[in-house]
Amino acid sequence: MRNRPVIVGVLAAVLGGAAACGDGGAATPTASSPAPSSGQHIAVTSSAFAEGGTIPRRHTCDGADVSPPLAFSGVPAGATSLALLVEDTDAPQGPFTHWLVWDIAPRTTALTAGHAPEGAAQGRNGFRKPGYGGPCPPRGDRPHHYVFTVYAADRRPDLTPATATADGLRRALAGHTLASGTLTGRYGR
Results as ranks from 00 to 15, higher is better:
residue 1 M to T: 01
residue 1 M to K: 02
residue 1 M to Q: 06
residue 3 N to Q: 09
residue 7 I to F: 14
residue 10 V to R: 04
residue 10 V to A: 15
residue 12 A to F: 10
residue 12 A to S: 06
residue 13 A to L: 15
residue 14 V to C: 06
residue 14 V to A: 12
residue 14 V to H: 00
residue 15 L to D: 06
residue 15 L to Y: 00
residue 17 G to D: 06
residue 17 G to Q: 05
residue 19 A to K: 03
residue 20 A to K: 08
residue 20 A to F: 11
residue 22 G to P: 02
residue 22 G to H: 06
residue 23 D to W: 03
residue 27 A to Y: 09
residue 27 A to S: 07
residue 29 P to S: 04
residue 30 T to Y: 03
residue 31 A to G: 13
residue 32 S to M: 04
residue 32 S to G: 05
residue 33 S to N: 11
residue 34 P to Y: 05
residue 38 S to Y: 01
residue 38 S to R: 12
residue 39 G to Y: 03
residue 44 V to F: 07
residue 45 T to K: 15
residue 46 S to G: 04
residue 46 S to H: 07
residue 46 S to E: 12
residue 46 S to P: 09
residue 47 S to Y: 00
residue 48 A to H: 08
residue 49 F to W: 08
residue 51 E to V: 10
residue 51 E to C: 04
residue 62 D to G: 12
residue 63 G to C: 09
residue 63 G to S: 09
residue 65 D to C: 01
residue 67 S to A: 15
residue 68 P to L: 05
residue 69 P to W: 08
residue 70 L to E: 02
residue 70 L to T: 02
residue 71 A to W: 00
residue 71 A to E: 13
residue 73 S to F: 00
residue 74 G to N: 10
residue 75 V to I: 04
residue 76 P to R: 10
residue 76 P to W: 11
residue 77 A to Q: 15
residue 79 A to N: 05
residue 82 L to E: 09
residue 86 V to H: 08
residue 87 E to A: 10
residue 87 E to L: 14
residue 88 D to M: 06
residue 89 T to L: 15
residue 90 D to R: 06
residue 92 P to W: 01
residue 92 P to Q: 11
residue 93 Q to R: 14
residue 94 G to K: 05
residue 94 G to P: 04
residue 96 F to S: 10
residue 97 T to P: 02
residue 98 H to W: 00
residue 98 H to L: 15
residue 99 W to D: 13
residue 101 V to N: 04
residue 101 V to R: 00
residue 102 W to Q: 03
residue 107 R to D: 15
residue 108 T to C: 04
residue 109 T to K: 10
residue 109 T to R: 14
residue 110 A to K: 09
residue 111 L to W: 06
residue 112 T to Y: 03
residue 114 G to Y: 02
residue 117 P to A: 13
residue 118 E to R: 13
residue 118 E to H: 14
residue 122 Q to Y: 07
residue 123 G to F: 09
residue 126 G to R: 07
residue 127 F to R: 14
residue 128 R to E: 14
residue 128 R to V: 12
residue 128 R to N: 15
residue 129 K to L: 12
residue 133 G to Y: 12
residue 134 G to R: 06
residue 135 P to G: 06
residue 136 C to S: 10
residue 139 R to H: 15
residue 142 R to N: 14
residue 143 P to G: 06
residue 144 H to D: 14
residue 146 Y to W: 07
residue 147 V to K: 13
residue 149 T to Y: 04
residue 152 A to I: 04
residue 152 A to D: 09
residue 155 R to P: 01
residue 161 P to A: 13
residue 164 A to L: 08
residue 164 A to P: 08
residue 164 A to Q: 11
residue 164 A to V: 13
residue 168 G to F: 03
residue 169 L to F: 07
residue 172 A to E: 10
residue 172 A to H: 02
residue 172 A to S: 11
residue 173 L to K: 02
residue 176 H to N: 03
residue 179 A to M: 02
residue 180 S to C: 01
residue 182 T to E: 07
residue 183 L to F: 02
residue 183 L to G: 03
residue 184 T to F: 07
residue 186 R to A: 14
residue 187 Y to A: 09
residue 188 G to K: 12
residue 188 G to M: 11
residue 189 R to E: 12
